[in-house]
Design a binder for these strands. Structure first.
Lengths: 140, 140
DNA sequence: AATTATTTGCAAATATGTCGCAATTTGTGC
DNA sequence: GCACAAATTGCGACATATTTGCAAATAATT
């Protein structure tokens, strides 16, 4: 398995971009804390990073396919994309706000492929969110 | 089939809310024009409604499960939820920005149910977005 | 039609996202 | 490791999006 930071560096290099301290920080923060809202990400990146830099970094990362946005609950969040972590989807507990990653499911994935193919839609990516109440909360 | 507006009224009433002119307007606009960004919705609701009221209405509707947000491309949009229109998902063409509704698929739906049930997650709702290039655009 | 509680519109406050530019940092070649 | 050119950052100023307090207007009830 390749060092994630090395993979990041080479992805950036392939596009003539360099791996700077802020970009590294954003990456490791996402690595450590999973899907975050921009506000959380800015906050978690520490006071050393400027809002604008975080936004710029995320915009770049999104273009290079390093991160992806998800709509979870009220605000969108960003997380590392499939090249940097296993492909997965989310369940969102509307009670406690917890986000649970669901394991990859081949049946599901293939079905989605098929549905797109049916109408000659060339699928590149997809996202699934299940909303409901998690085991923990429904136990109450 | 129940009158949608009646269904709206009773949903509101069940929660001690009343069906006002602005709320009616937002509802019928969504009915007529499908998934809209807030800006579009505000615009389409006409100058008679204040921005703030539209936001408040959407927040309320979301809590009552009358509308749901979708992340389509960069901005989120709102549309009526499954109780008010047929359950469906979307494909989003990253080229032309078109949104294509995909027909309901039982295999897909059941699989999602099963996956949630597996971890005792009580699923209430879900949303799927497939991003890619539509038939029209890839023909070029 | 009068009463009371809810909801609206308005104006102002916050929050979120973007931009230009001087100062700093990065990658590169020596 | 140092100097240079190019890329990137942080800052402050904007632009846009969303929320809030409150007096006035509207809805449900009697």
């Amino acid at each position: 398995m390749i060092e994630p930071l090395e993979q990041l560096r080479s992805t950036l290099q392939d596009h003539g971009q360099s791996l700077t301290r802020p970009r590294k920080k954003v990456f490791t923060t996402l690595q450590a804390k999973g899907p975050l809202t921009m506000a959380e990400l800015i906050q978690a990146s520490g006071t050393s990073l400027d809002r604008a830099s975080v936004y710029r970094t995320i915009k770049l990362y999104e273009q290079l396919g390093i991160v992806q946005r998800l709509q979870i609950g009220w605000k969108y969040r960003v997380e590392l994309s499939n090249s940097f972590q296993h492909h997965h989807h989310h369940m969102y507990c509307t009670q406690c706000g917890n986000v649970i990653a669901m394991p990859e499911d081949t049946v599901l994935e293939e079905r989605l492929q098929a549905l797109a193919a049916n109408i000659s839609f060339s699928a590149q990516d997809h996202q699934i969110e299940i909303r409901g109440i998690c085991a923990n909360c429904s136990r109450t």
